[in-house]
Structures are given as structure tokens and as C-alpha cells.
């Protein structure tokens, strides 16, 4: 049973169809990238999958259940397009990540040991264990993005939906994030990733779906890098001058 099946999805904003009859399927444990130029409708399609924008036509099934009747949202980890994790009132990284466990808790019930463990584990996975009790607005943009990814991991998802998770994130963090996501894929988690660039995260993809003008124009092998990126000598990892490379600390300097 596929994790996600989208058939003929059409999404309109103010009468203009942004996504036009797109088909998309993700099998369990499969890693799929949704690619396309800015304005191709990839973010809109993923928002429709997440239930944030209504469909004008077509159907979406999550884990074999039509989206309207789907209630098991804790099986889905969602990383929104970069907005920053900070908000009006200060929150610690641990508090933001614990939002990822709310779907596992009954309304009004206190967090259980499993919830606290999942929060601590997710923060450690993204290399922020030492920053659990820091206010997120004192963290850098890349660290805030890691907090949002940890929040999605904390729900122990079977499908991880990420909307441009690496925009504005430094190369070192991208490499480390790719390792974290790869671990989850190995553990059987399916990944649907919106991206417009090839990078460390795209190396582990099984398949890419390319949108242009709201229509699927390619569904198959991930596009190969061209130009400078095709050069085997081209380094994806941008070495830092401070000598952290070569240590086994995946996340580089704290």
C-alpha cells in the first residue's frame, strides 16, 4: 500500500490553476523529490498533500485513506517552508520540538516519558542537544531550521514531508541533515522533499518528480547534475577554514 497517492490533483488560487492534474505516488520507505522552478507549483502541491490548501480537483490518499477521512496525522512529519522557528513569546528549542509530540498526547494530558525521550533524541539527531534550553530566537537561521526538522522527526513519522528544508542552510548543515534523513530512510521512513537544488540531500533519492507550470513533466530517475556540479572533483562539502573537518563531529563547531 503506497504511503501517498495523488491522482489528478488541481489546486487554484483565486481562479488560477497553480497545480493542474498532477499525479504523485510515494511507496513505503521511498525517497522522492518534488522539483521544479520557482512558481512551478511544487510548494502548492505539497501544501495540498499536507492538507493546508484545498483541492479543486483530483484525490489525495494518505496511507490508503482519503485525505478527508485521514486522522492519523502523527504518522506524518512536516517541515514547513522556512519561516524561522522564532515567534512573539520566547520558546526554547525543546518546547518547539515537543510540539511534534502533541499528536501523540491526549488533549490536556501531561507528556509521558516516551514523549520526552523522543524530543531529546530528535534534538540530539540534529546536533542541538546542547541547545535544548536555548531560546530559539538566539539560534542562527540554520540552527532554527534544524529545530523545525527535529520537531518533524519527534513524531516518529512514516512519511516525512519537507518543503525546501535546506534553503539558506549552510553546506555543512546540509551534509549533516542529509545523513540524518538517510538514517530515517534506512529505518523505513518515506520522504517527500521539495527542493530546487541538487545537494547532499538529493544524493539518496530513489526518484524525482519534476513539475513545470503545475504539470508533471518527469517522473523517474533523479536528474543528474550538469555543468560544474557534474565534475567529480567538485566538492559538495565546503570545507571550513577552522579545522573542524575530519573530526567525527558531524555538525562541526557548536
Amino acid at each position: 500500500m503506497p504511503v501517498l497517492t495523488v491522482r489528478g490533483a488541481t489546486v487554484s488560487y483565486g481562479g488560477r490553476a497553480v497545480v493542474r492534474g498532477a499525479d504523485l505516488a510515494v511507496a513505503p520507505g521511498e525517497a522522492v523529490a518534488l522539483m521544479g522552478a520557482n512558481g512551478s507549483g511544487k510548494s502548492t502541491l505539497i501544501k495540498a498533500v499536507a492538507g493546508l490548501v484545498p483541492l479543486a480537483g483530483g484525490t489525495i490518499e494518505l496511507f490508503g485513506t482519503p485525505q478527508k477521512r485521514f486522522r492519523d496525522w502523527r504518522r506524518i512529519g512536516y517541515v514547513p517552508q522556512r519561516t524561522g522557528a522564532a515567534s512573539g513569546v520566547p520558546s526554547t528549542a525543546a518546547e518547539v520540538v515537543s510540539q511534534g509530540r502533541l499528536a501523540h498526547r491526549l488533549l490536556g494530558m501531561p507528556a509521558r516519558r516516551a514523549d520526552r525521550d523522543a524530543v531529546a533524541r530528535s534534538l540530539a539527531e540534529v546536533g542541538l542537544a546542547d541547545h535544548a534550553h536555548c531560546s530559539v530566537d538566539t539560534l542562527s537561521g540554520g540552527q532554527q531550521q534544524r529545530v523545525l526538522i527535529a520537531r518533524a522527526l519527534a513524531t516518529d513519522p512514516d512519511l516525512l514531508i519537507m518543503d525546501e528544508p535546506t534553503v539558506g542552510v549552510d553546506a555543512e548543515t546540509q551534509t549533516a541533515l542529509a545523513a540524518v534523513i538517510a538514517d530515517r530512510i534506512d529505518a523505513g521512513c518515506a520522504v517527500l522533499l521539495v527542493t530546487h537544488e541538487l545537494g547532499p540531500l538529493t544524493d539518496r533519492l530513489d526518484r524525482a518528480v519534476v513539475l513545470a507550470d503545475g504539470k508533471v513533466v518527469h517522473d523517474g530517475a533523479p536528474p543528474r547534475p550538469v555543468g560544474e556540479h557534474a565534475d567529480p572533483a567538485h566538492e559538495h562539502v565546503h570545507p571550513h577554514a577552522n579545522g573542524h573537518n575530519g573530526t567525527d563531529d558531524l555538525w562541526g563547531g557548536k
Binding site: W73, I76, Q99, A103, L107, A111
Partner: peptide, 22 residues
């Protein structure tokens, strides 16, 4: 009692909706 849930909807309503919160 509802602090974690209300924080979630106030800080990031979209994420809260995707987590299936009411």
C-alpha cells in the same frame, strides 16, 4: 492545562493543522 496545545496553534498554526490538532 492546555498550554502545549495552545502554544502550538499560536506559534505555528499551519504546523498544528498538519499535526492533526483541533
Amino acid at each position: 492545562v492546555l498550554r502545549p496545545w495552545l502554544t502550538a496553534i499560536c506559534a505555528d498554526e499551519q504546523y498544528a493543522r498538519v499535526s492533526g490538532l483541533p
